[in-house]
């Protein structure tokens, strides 16, 4: 059993499951958006589309999925390449730094998305 404090859900299984579930949600969202803009879309229809609550909630779900998916994915990449094993203590410092940067970026995007979705 390897303990880990910076992974998303602390458990390998929950991270793994979340990664898959979020991927499915993102796929569904991509299909939905592609279908909506297929054949062209103007501002009025676009605004109408996003004025519906369910679309906003679906979009929020997609944003949250993206956040979780990115967190888990980036965490996996960072723990592969920026490690004590590969670059000594520097690896840990770098990884935590990048991790914080990723988290902040994700947080900013989530807040910004919520703002966009409910500001019009």
């Amino acid at each position: 059993m390897v303990t880990s404090v910076t992974s998303f859900g602390r458990s390998g299984l929950s991270d793994w499951l979340l990664q898959r579930v979020s991927a499915v949600i993102l796929l569904a969202y991509v299909v939905f958006i592609t279908a909506s803009v297929w054949g062209g879309v103007d501002f009025v229809t676009w605004k109408a589309l996003f004025s519906q609550t369910w679309v906003r909630i679906f979009s929020l779900l997609a944003v949250l999925s993206l956040a979780a998916h990115a967190w888990i994915g980036m965490w996996a990449v960072l723990t592969d390449y920026l490690t004590e094993r590969l670059m000594g203590t520097k690896g840990n410092v770098l990884r935590i730094g990048f991790q914080i940067l990723c988290s902040l970026t994700i947080f900013v995007y989530v807040v910004w998305s919520i703002q966009i979705l409910w500001s019009y």
């Binding site: 059993m1 390897v2 303990t3 880990s4 992974s7 602390r10 458990s11 390998g12 299984l13 991270d15 793994w16 965490w75 996996a76 723990t79």
Partner: peptide, 14 residues
């Protein structure tokens, strides 16, 4: 199974 349910032991397999 309890020993394996962490983010590394099994789940590093991609």
């Amino acid at each position: 199974l309890a020993q394996l349910d962490d983010p590394f032991s099994v789940f590093r397999c991609h």
